[in-house]
């Protein structure tokens, strides 16, 4: 079980949240100009680290707003929480 601190509502059970996978994936500015390899990279290839991972969550059963979390995928420790548009905090440890 994860206790996820929503930046607007506070700490809640992970059952209230929807997962949005890796954060900071930008859609290519001109999709028509990408190669097949670049487009495949954008569509299907995500980081999959064992350790700190910047990911998106949405508080589906609460405020329904998206935000970013840095979470250790091995220990499940939540290392940082920040709002959309903010940059990932440098420190991966709280």
């Amino acid at each position: 079980m994860l206790l996820i601190p929503c930046p607007w509502c506070g700490p809640r059970d992970d059952a209230e949240f929807a997962y949005g996978n890796q954060a900071h994936i930008a859609r290519p500015a001109d999709p028509g100009a990408t190669t097949d390899a670049e487009w495949a990279e954008y569509l299907y290839f995500r980081d999959n680290p064992k350790g700190p991972f910047a990911e998106r969550w949405m508080h589906a059963a609460g405020c329904r707003r998206w935000f970013n979390v840095v979470r250790d995928t091995n220990s499940h420790a939540i290392l940082a929480v920040y709002k959309p548009g903010e940059t990932r905090p440098a420190a991966d440890r709280p």
Binding site: M1, L2, T73, N74
Partner: peptide
């Protein structure tokens, strides 16, 4: 579970 993990455990829900 919906989230990435290497912990060999998931959520109770």
């Amino acid at each position: 579970d919906s989230y990435n993990s290497y912990a060999q455990r998931g959520s109770m829900n």
